[in-house]
């Protein structure tokens, strides 16, 4: 047992050396190599990559640890941009983890390091808007979402507009929300951002449902559902089904509504989202006239 690990290392090293030798004749075929990255920056980038990987697999604690290490290294060499990215990532992970206070502290620190003309500013402003929205501060959320949408000119503009439209909708400005969401939909379709395209459709459906256009809302929800199923986003599928259930219930189609809620509960239960499943079951109980859970 004790000699297995060195053997594995030797085997891996041998394979890599063989691969290096095989590729040696090809080296230099595509122009000069990138300039070497300083050791400290390389370390910070490495920790940042580890944080992203941890967040992707749902390991929030691991992500926070890795981003803190990246922040520490960036601060040790006064790399403001690297530190801002680490702070932005920390704020986002804390917010997704349900920790609004550290999320707000980290994003405020990041905004101190990011100038308005920095390419990082739209993302920082977007995160600030999300943190404000999570805190229930709609004016601040709208302000920062607007700044983000104005600053972003790239493929993420549709996402920024989506957020602004959503804040407007939550603030009761349904017409502004519909216009903004339509612009976001066009931007997302142009950028090929399928997940945000579905968000735009769902938001437009919400605006239609709020305006009494139940059929139009249902059509938009179904479009969003199709995209979310295409990209296999479990939580978004459940949200679309919940919205379809609400639209059916609003039209007096109780059986259809129960069917949508039932599907939403099933999706959430199997998608490790017990809160979503519970919400769907509560709606079903409410429709049946039973006790609310």
């Amino acid at each position: 047992m004790s000699s297995v690990r060195p053997r594995i290392f030797r085997a891996v090293a041998a394979i890599l050396l063989f691969f290096s030798a095989a590729c040696a004749p090809l080296s230099g075929c595509s122009g000069p190599a990138a300039p070497p990255v300083p050791r400290a920056k390389e370390g910070a980038l490495s920790w940042n990559r580890r944080g992203l990987a941890a967040e992707e697999r749902g390991d929030a604690e691991g992500a926070i640890y890795a981003f803190r290490e990246a922040l520490k290294i960036n601060r040790s060499v006064e790399d403001a941009e690297g530190a801002a990215v680490a702070l932005l990532n920390l704020a986002r992970v804390h917010r997704l983890k349900g920790e609004p206070v550290p999320a707000r502290e980290r994003i405020d620190e990041a905004l101190l390091l990011v100038a308005p003309d920095s390419p990082l500013f739209p993302e920082a402003a977007f995160e600030k808007a999300k943190v404000s929205l999570a805190a229930g501060d709609l004016p601040a959320a709208r302000e920062w979402a607007r700044k983000a949408a104005l600053a972003e000119t790239g493929p993420s503009r549709g996402r920024m507009l989506n957020l602004l439209a959503r804040v407007d909708f939550l603030g009761g400005a349904e017409e502004e929300a519909r216009v903004c969401a339509a612009e976001a939909l066009a931007a997302n379709r142009g950028a090929g951002a399928r997940a945000e395209e579905a968000n735009s459709l769902r938001l437009l459906g919400d605006v239609s449902a709020a305006g009494g256009d139940r059929k139009g809302a249902e059509r938009l929800y179904l479009e969003a559902l199709a995209i979310d199923k295409e990209i296999a986003e479990s939580r978004k599928i459940a949200v679309d089904l919940m919205a379809l259930g609400a639209a059916a219930a609003a039209g007096g189609e109780t059986e259809r509504a129960l069917a949508f809620y039932g599907r939403a509960a099933e999706v959430s239960r199997n998608g490790d989202d017990p809160e979503g499943a519970d919400a769907a079951l509560r709606e079903m109980e409410r429709l049946k006239g039973g006790p609310s859970r």
């Binding site: 910070a44 990559r49 992203l52 992500a63 990215v85 680490a86 986002r92 992970v93 993302e123 989506n162």
Partner: peptide, 13 residues
């Protein structure tokens, strides 16, 4: 290879 550090993907909803 170095370059700019990545950011956790954001979502509007």
């Amino acid at each position: 290879q170095g370059g700019r550090p990545g950011i956790v993907p954001g979502d509007s909803h």
